[in-house]
Amino acid sequence: MFGPLTCKPGSSRNNKTGPWRTESRPKFLKKNCIACNMCLLICPESCISGEGKNTYDFDPDYCKGCGNCARICPKQDIEMVKEDSKE
């Protein structure tokens, strides 16, 4: 009968982890970003992308609201805002 259970590459994207957020989420101000790429580099969820100044943003489908990007941004161009805030 059928062989072993295997998974297709990158299929974890079917599992949206955005709903994990309870308190806060990042807000990319896109004003003073110097494209140092640190936010993208240190995101544990691989859900920040961008190329060039003021183009970085996060993917709300997957961000768990850990807050590391806001803390690492050398230009304070990322703020953590309340999860349900309208900003």
Binding site: G3, P4, L5, T6, C7, K8, P9
Partner: peptide, 14 residues
């Protein structure tokens, strides 16, 4: 029929 192959990157032993 199934193997560790960079052309067809599957996860074995999930």
């Amino acid at each position: 029929p199934y193997k560790l192959d960079v052309e067809n990157p599957m996860t074995l032993g999930p």
